[in-house]
Each structure stands twice: as structure tokens, then as C-alpha cells.
Amino acid sequence: MWRRCLSAGCRRFGLKGIWGSHAVRRCSAPALPAGRITALQAGDLWRSHFVENGVTEPDHSTHYIIAYLLGAKTIESLEQGKLTELLSREKTEQMWQLCTKRLSRMPVQYVIEEWDFRDLTLKMRSPVFIPRPETEELVELVLRDLEETGVGADEQRTCLEVGCGSGAISLSLLNSLPQLKAIAVDQSQAAVDLTRENASRLGLQDRLQVYHIDVMKDAETFLSLCSSVSALVSNPPYLFSEDMMTLDPEISRFEDHAALDGGKDGLRVIRQILTLAPQILSSPGRVYLEVDPRHPTLIRRWVEANVEEMHYVETQQDITGRPRFCILQKEKSNKDHKLDLD
């Protein structure tokens, strides 16, 4: 698999201090060598050029491009002889094309046009949001709950993903649970198209419905298409708007800002999801959210004050120990409890 540590920055967002300087210098590629060189020699040349021009993770970037060029997942999996063989002129030119894209600060996922998410290899294209390692953890939480609550051979359930991007969450869930069906929506047509392409490539298209819907603008359409789902999963836009100014070039120049900016407090889309959730979920369906570490307390308070049918179940930490995932569950309202008593 493509190594997890390289994801447009090892955390979800390349904020200043993670990616480095926000400024981008215009850089030119080194000249193509006159004679033939090996993959290792080409890699050394480009690694040095990346360092000189402030490109982050120069080693990883070079290694992934070489591995892709030579038909492997990682440079470690290549036969050593491959690295010291002279490249053809065609391969050398391709190496220069790919590395020049990385020199422009294009994330390596877009450069090589694919990336691994859990046990799937997904096609990647700018500006569709690149899935990060935290979201793999989110999928694990959902899978654990669905398996514990009986998604077996005789029971079919439906999962809804809001903001599907490349389809990483839905497709990973479908791949792990053969009886599951999924609905995925996104405000970006590019994301919808890429999710459909990935579903088809993986043979999962028959269990996935994908819609081009903006939940902020098309709530009525959204509700008409999505109902009685067992789980609503989302890695929504959750950056505070002020943080958008601190994004580094790999993200600010290549990824969809609408998939990042969550409004002044980062909760604009999250509030909408939680407002609509009771009308979509079966009882006792759950909502699983990936959020900013500042959000769980804010979300709990807001739900308690504004969404009677939703109960905040728990906050889960990510692998680095930060509060990252919020789990909520649909419960009957007080009005429904009174009807039951009558």
C-alpha cells in the first residue's frame, strides 16, 4: 500500500508549521540529462532540487514517484536492480514530468493520480479532497459498531456518507461488509464523478447510489433521497474560516476549498447534518463525524440545546490522542415517548 505517513501532510490539513512556509517560489525544473541515467540518479537529482526549492517531504515525494514510474507501490518493494538500471528516454521524460508537477507543490497523490485508503487503491484527481489517515480510523469505528449490531448475512443495512470526495469512506465500508448498501452525496460534481469511477473500478457500483447534492442548499432533495439509513458518516468541511489563510500551497492551490472551510466556527455544515439527521436515520441509527479537536464539546452543547431527537454518545480520540470523532444516536423525542405511554 502507499505509505500512510504521506498524505498531503501527515495530518488532515497542512497548516503552517506542518507543511512549512506558505509562500511559494516559482521554480524551474532541472534540465533533462543529455545521456541516460538510472532511477536512483534521477531520484537523487530531484530530491536535491526539491530541498533547494522548499518542497516538503522531498524523500517521500521522490520515492513514490520512482515507485509509480517503475510499476511498484513502494520503492522498498522494487528489486534493487531496477533502481540501478538505465532509464529509457521515455521513462526519464515521464520522471521529469511527474517531478515538475510536485515542484509546483501539487500533492503527490494528484501527481501519481492514485492513493491507498485502508485496503483499497483509489483514483485521485484535483480538486477532489484527498483522504487522510484519520478518516481510516473513522471507518474502523463505523465498522466496529455495524458488526456489533448485527450486519450479518441475513440483514441488509444502508449507510449514508455526506461529502464523499473520492468515495473513500463508502467504498471502504462496502468492501468490508458485503451485505451493506450505501448512499453518497457531495456538493462537487468532480467528487461525484470520481466516486462513481472508483466504485466502478472496484466492482462496488451496484451497492452504491451517488448524488450531486449540496446539503446546505438542497435539504429538501437530500431528505427525499436519503431515508431510513442505519448510519450517517461524514468527514465534513470543519476548518475554521480564519485557518483557511494558513493553509500551505499543497492544499490551498490544489484541493477544493468547499471541502475544507466549515465557516467561522467550523460547524456550519456539521450543524446542518445534525439538524437533518433525525429525519434520515432509522431508530436507533447513529451519526459518525470526523471533526476538529476543538469541536466535540461545542457539538455536544449545541445538540443538547437544539436537536431533541439526537443524543451525544461519545467522543473518540485519533491515533495521536486528539479528540477527533463524535458519535451521536437518534432517540425518540419526548413527544414520541408520551405517545408510547398513551
Rank of each mutant, 00 (worst) to 15 (best):
C5R: 13
K16G: 10
S28K: 10
S28P: 00
R36K: 15
Q41T: 05
E52K: 13
I65D: 11
G71M: 01
A72P: 01
I75S: 00
S77K: 11
Q80E: 14
T84Y: 03
E85K: 06
T92G: 13
E93W: 08
Q94S: 07
T100S: 15
Q109S: 14
Q109E: 15
T121C: 15
R125Y: 02
P133E: 08
E137H: 12
L143C: 06
D145S: 11
T149L: 05
D154W: 06
E155R: 12
C164K: 01
L171M: 09
S188F: 02
D193H: 09
T195Q: 07
G203P: 07
I213N: 12
D214L: 01
M216Q: 15
E220T: 09
T221Y: 05
T221G: 09
S227C: 10
L232N: 04
S234E: 10
N235T: 04
T246Q: 12
T246W: 09
I251L: 15
I251M: 14
G262P: 10
G263V: 08
D265F: 01
L267N: 05
R271W: 10
T275Y: 09
L281S: 09
Y288G: 00
H295P: 04
L298A: 15
E304T: 05
E314I: 00
T320L: 10
F325M: 06
K330A: 08
